[in-house]
Simulated scan of single mutants.
Amino acid sequence: MAAREVPAPPPAGTKVIGRGAGRAAAGLIRMIWPYCLIILLWQCWLVLDDVPALIAPSPLQTLAGTVTGFAQYLPDLLTTLMVIGTGLGLGMLLGITVASLSWFSPMLSGVLTPLTILLNTLPSIALIPIVASIFGYTLYTIIVIAALISYFPAFVLTRSGLDSIPPGAADLLHVLGAGKRRHYLHVALPAAVPNIITALRISAMLSVVGALTAEWLLGTRGLGYRLAKAQQIMDTDQAWQVSLIGVVLSLVIFGIASGLERKVSMKFR
């Protein structure tokens, strides 16, 4: 009786590659299924309510128009990115600086903290005309708005992080004769880094909203201005396409900031 042939085992590493591909596919599905659900609900709404294209175009129509007409939106997208980046950077720098000053001086803390809270209570819509009356109706006003909106999370979280030093560290530095400046540089500021990165993630999204709102109200360039212009001339397709670009921009910025936060949190854990 002839011996039955035994199939050769799969090459080494095949199972590992298969498992890695499966995990990657599962991760991709988890990431995109909410957006697919939104697109499906969008299309169902149009079909079930018989919404005319003049009011709301279909998802495929909006996506196709965005892709084919992306070149005309690129200058406005770059302007908005510049505003967001500059405003976010200035807001984070201002928030960290003011939080550090209030940490060094209780007297400054008693002055700066109430002013910061008062500034945060003002809605951005009400804040824009005030800032515009000071800086004029220019691109600088939009940058200032994005910076002011980014400032509050940076201040609050940095101040909280500066106070969350490891137990006993302050006593040890005091015994060693270290001054408050060394205390700040070697203990307080490193302890505040995870909070600062969290503030960056929160402020990034707020700066996007602030920049688009300010551009929509008083801008002459940018995605917000393009959206306002499309609404004025009742160009529904362009309005939805600009809105789609704004949503994608927000998701990308949020994803980058969240990834940076995870990496920093792992290092400081």
Score class of each variant (00 low, 15 high):
Met1Trp: 09
Glu5Ser: 12
Val6Asn: 09
Pro7Asp: 11
Ala8Lys: 05
Ala8Ser: 13
Ala8Asp: 10
Pro9Ala: 15
Pro9Arg: 15
Pro11Tyr: 08
Pro11Asn: 12
Ala12His: 07
Lys15Tyr: 01
Gly18Pro: 02
Gly18Asp: 12
Arg19His: 07
Gly20Met: 14
Ala21Leu: 15
Gly22Trp: 10
Ala25Val: 08
Ala26Asp: 04
Gly27Arg: 11
Leu28Arg: 07
Leu28Phe: 13
Met31Ile: 10
Pro34Phe: 05
Tyr35Phe: 13
Cys36Thr: 10
Leu37Ser: 06
Leu37Pro: 03
Ile39Lys: 03
Leu41His: 07
Gln43Lys: 07
Gln43Ala: 06
Cys44Glu: 03
Asp49Met: 12
Val51Gly: 01
Pro52Gln: 14
Ala53Ser: 15
Ile55Lys: 12
Ser58Tyr: 03
Pro59Lys: 13
Leu63Met: 09
Ala64Asp: 06
Gly65His: 02
Thr66Ser: 04
Thr68Asp: 10
Gly69Thr: 01
Phe70Ile: 14
Phe70Cys: 03
Phe70Lys: 07
Gln72Met: 11
Gln72Leu: 10
Leu74Phe: 09
Leu74Gly: 00
Leu78Cys: 02
Thr80Ala: 06
Leu81Tyr: 02
Met82Ala: 15
Val83Leu: 13
Thr86His: 00
Gly95Lys: 11
Ile96Glu: 13
Leu101Asp: 12
Phe104Ala: 12
Ser105Tyr: 05
Ser109Leu: 09
Gly110Asp: 09
Gly110Gln: 13
Val111Gly: 03
Thr113Ala: 08
Ile125Thr: 10
Ile125Lys: 07
Ile128Pro: 01
Ile128Leu: 04
Gly136Pro: 04
Thr138Cys: 02
Leu139Asn: 09
Tyr140Gly: 10
Ile145Pro: 00
Ile145Arg: 05
Ile149Ala: 10
Ser150His: 05
Pro153Phe: 04
Phe155Trp: 14
Leu157Thr: 04
Leu157Pro: 00
Thr158Pro: 06
Arg159Met: 10
Ser160Gln: 14
Ile165Tyr: 04
Ile165Asp: 01
Pro166Thr: 09
Pro166Gly: 06
Pro167Asn: 11
Pro167Lys: 14
Gly168Asp: 12
Ala169Arg: 06
Ala170Asp: 08
His174Phe: 00
Arg182Ser: 10
Val187Tyr: 02
Asn195Tyr: 11
Ile196Leu: 09
Ser203Leu: 09
Met205Phe: 03
Met205Asp: 01
Val208Cys: 07
Val208Gln: 03
Val208Pro: 00
Thr213Ser: 14
Thr213Ala: 14
Glu215Val: 13
Leu217Tyr: 12
Leu217Ala: 14
Leu218Trp: 00
Gly219Met: 05
Thr220Met: 10
Arg221Thr: 05
Gly222Lys: 02
Leu223Gln: 05
Leu223Ala: 06
Lys229Asn: 13
Gln231Ala: 08
Ile233Glu: 00
Ile233Thr: 13
Ala239Asp: 08
Trp240Ile: 11
Trp240His: 07
Leu244Met: 12
Leu244Val: 06
Leu244Arg: 14
Leu251Trp: 08
Ile256Phe: 04
Ala257Gly: 04
Ser258Arg: 13
Ser258Gln: 12
Arg262Glu: 10
Arg262Phe: 05
Val264Ser: 05
Ser265Leu: 07
Lys267Leu: 13
Lys267Phe: 06
Phe268Leu: 11
